[in-house]
């Protein structure tokens, strides 16, 4: 390895920039187990006497059920998105029925609609059927807004699905439902995993809709729950940071473990 000045410079640049990016997250985790005093006097030192009680207090103040709610809402939504989108994408990609192109374009066009532009009618509609302040009222729009992008991705995958398998299954007497759910979907895992990760990360972090749909503290998802602490603990930084750490840790850990899948899934958005 030739060690040239330019090489050193490149390492330095990338290194310094990366450090700057990592700093706030490192500070968040470091500070979450400190005392207020230590937080300000030694912001980047390791905590001398880790205050795990910060985590316990945050956990008991709501983080535990916010996490449970997020887990519930995210997993149910993602399962429904995958199921509904896979069925539709398969139909659009493989069955040549009239109106197919129109339906495909209609569904796909929807992905450009920002949820903020329909907050008012959505609120009206959900309120009209008494779904405001329920998890179902959150899950249904999540599924609807998750459909376009999921279909876009799965459609492209199903187009290239080998016809031989399909035909064989048909000859074996499979119904179309068995075909899609028992044969096509299991064989499309890479695409499904991409959809699952993308939607899961997005919904885990979703805030705007949750803000207008959910009110009861007991029903709040993680992002919405954090805003409660934002008001409550605005001067109690260690508790605030412990809550942030606990809210962020699951998704960061998953990201580190499944890094390749995460990047492929989230980057897939650009394609």
């Amino acid at each position: 390895m030739r060690l040239r000045l330019s090489t050193v410079l490149v390492y330095l640049l990338v290194g310094v920039y990366t450090l700057l990016v990592a700093l706030p997250i490192v500070w968040m985790f470091l500070s979450s187990t400190k005392t207020m005093r230590e937080l300000f006097t030694a912001p980047f030192a390791l905590p001398s006497d880790p205050q795990w009680s910060n985590f316990i207090r945050a956990w008991e103040s709501g983080i535990s059920h916010y996490l449970a709610n997020s887990l519930l809402v995210t997993s149910v939504s993602v399962i429904l998105i995958v199921l509904v989108s896979a069925l539709a994408a398969y139909s659009l990609a493989r069955i040549n029925f009239p109106g197919r192109v129109f339906i495909y374009l209609l569904l796909i066009a929807g992905f450009a609609i920002p949820v903020h532009t329909v907050l008012v009618p959505l609120y009206r509609t959900l309120n009209g059927v008494n779904l405001i302040n329920t998890h179902v009222g959150l899950i249904l729009p999540y599924v609807a807004f998750g459909i376009p992008f999921s279909i876009l991705l799965l459609y492209a995958f199903f187009l290239e699905f080998p016809a031989e398998i399909e035909d064989a299954a048909r000859i074996d007497g499979c119904t179309i439902w068995q075909l899609v759910i028992q044969i096509v979907m299991p064989l499309s895992m890479p695409a499904l995993v991409s959809v699952i990760i993308f939607q899961a990360v997005f919904l885990w972090n979703e805030f705007s809709l949750a803000l207008i749909v959910i009110r009861d503290d007991a029903l709040r998802t993680i992002p919405l729950g954090l805003t409660k602490f934002q008001g409550q603990w605005s001067t109690n930084w260690t508790l605030m940071l412990a809550s942030l750490s606990m809210a962020t840790l699951p998704v960061l850990l998953l990201f580190v473990i499944l890094q390749r899948h995460f990047i492929r899934s989230l980057v897939g958005f650009s394609k």
Partner: peptide, 27 residues
């Protein structure tokens, strides 16, 4: 086969029209 096609795409269409398209025009 067409019927199959419509049935498979129906859940997505119904959800999408009710919760995305209709609210958009409603806006």
């Amino acid at each position: 086969e067409w019927l199959d096609g419509y049935v498979l795409v129906a859940p997505a269409i119904i959800l999408f029209v009710l919760l995305v398209v209709y609210p958009m025009f409603s806006t």
